[in-house]
Simulated scan of single mutants.
Amino acid sequence: MTMDHLRRNFLQKLVASAVVVPMLSPYRALADADPASTGGNQGTTLRVALMGLGSYAARVAEAMQSCKRARVAGLISGTPSKLQEWGTKFGVPEKSRYNYENFDRIKDDPDIDAVYVITPNALHRDQVIRVARAGKHVICEKPMAVNAKEGQDMVDACADAGVKLLVGYRMHFEPKTLEVVRMRKAGDFGRILFFQGLCGFRIGDPGQWRLDKALAGGGALMDIGIYAINGARYMVGEEPVWVTAQQTKTDPVKFKEGVDETIQFQLGFPSGAVASCLSTYQMNHLDRFFMTGEQGFAELQPATGYGPIQGRTHKGELTQPHATHQTIQMDEMAGILLDGNTPVVPVDGEEGLKDLKIIDAIYAACETGGRQELRLG
């Protein structure tokens, strides 16, 4: 059986099994908390089950060993050997280890508060809905889904179940990124005029799931271009109202139908600010954000890698200390889920849904060659 058949059988099997910080963080990732919504859980630990034990989940699990308010408390995988190995390594008892067929049983596991879904994009919708119906909070890796319709289904399911849905936007807690956001809010750059986001690398193994439309939902835009989309929004501080885009494909064998290789896209904002962005799986050395306003500028390069992020503004170098992104993210998400804290830059399902609407519009613009209007609310 070919790798493509194996991946598709795996996808079909999983879909078929679906049910229809005690104080403000030193990284300033949270806005002032609502006193009425905090206090009851301060000091408690967020107990997280990791779903999909691949390379990024391993990075998250290792980073969580340094968390003050979050710990690995459950595991969900289709590979029994991984459940055994990870369970031993991270101290997860057998009763809190699940596979994709039986993880609905987390409903009866009092030692799990939330599930972090770290699986291929096309699986997110059904898995998040199952977790919500089991009564657990959800953290979902970005992109939240493969299109806005699926994302809306997820937002609605979590709302119906009375659980919170967060998206793994680690950059929303990164210190230098937050300093640029703070400066923009303080008016240090004046009226924002232009943003540029360059995101890309040469992707390797042609057989990986990220190059399979059925699992990834697209190509570079879904995986890496979303950083420029999301970054344009939090750097400029507005929601875009239109998008144009152009697609280039030089290797149709590696990048099959529906899997984008390189897309250039432009965003327009209500104030008149514009963004010019590049998303690619065919070029290295692309990880840069640049923004300019009437009174100053900000540059982050690297802007979205695992760190350390480096940056400067018209006032000089950014010197905030580096800390492991996933450690900060999980501690701050504990504050959001347990204490009702409000992050400076949102990480909820509605935030993820906005990015999906923009992705849908970018693909439509590539297809039609025309400008797409956006209404993100």
Results as ranks from 00 to 15, higher is better:
167 V>G: 02
71 R>D: 02
20 V>H: 10
179 E>T: 12
226 I>L: 15
145 A>K: 02
357 K>W: 08
129 I>T: 02
112 I>S: 05
103 F>T: 10
252 P>D: 11
194 F>E: 13
174 E>H: 14
25 S>Q: 03
365 A>E: 04
25 S>Y: 04
219 G>D: 03
243 V>K: 00
81 S>E: 14
197 G>A: 01
252 P>C: 10
21 V>F: 03
308 P>E: 02
28 R>W: 08
119 T>M: 03
260 D>M: 14
111 D>F: 02
327 T>A: 14
251 D>C: 01
347 V>W: 07
211 L>H: 09
333 M>N: 11
355 D>C: 12
45 T>I: 14
336 I>M: 06
283 M>W: 06
42 Q>P: 06
333 M>L: 06
103 F>V: 11
335 G>L: 09
176 K>V: 06
300 L>D: 02
230 N>M: 02
288 R>W: 04
265 F>T: 11
369 G>V: 12
46 L>M: 05
241 V>I: 14
170 R>L: 13
201 F>N: 10
325 H>I: 04
357 K>G: 08
177 T>Q: 12
98 Y>N: 01
339 D>G: 01
121 N>A: 10
193 L>Y: 04
282 Q>W: 08
268 G>P: 06
79 T>F: 11
71 R>Q: 09
50 L>C: 11
14 L>S: 00
78 G>D: 12
73 A>S: 13
301 Q>I: 08
179 E>V: 08
355 D>N: 08
344 V>T: 14
176 K>D: 04
109 D>F: 03
66 S>M: 01
158 C>S: 00
93 P>I: 00
243 V>F: 05
331 D>N: 15
361 A>F: 08
357 K>A: 05
189 F>T: 08
150 E>I: 02
377 G>K: 15
94 E>G: 03
190 G>R: 09
335 G>V: 07
20 V>N: 13
102 N>M: 07
285 H>N: 14
106 I>S: 01
237 G>W: 04
60 V>A: 05
129 I>Q: 00
14 L>P: 00
133 R>P: 00
146 V>L: 00
138 V>A: 11
280 T>Q: 03
32 D>F: 11
138 V>H: 10
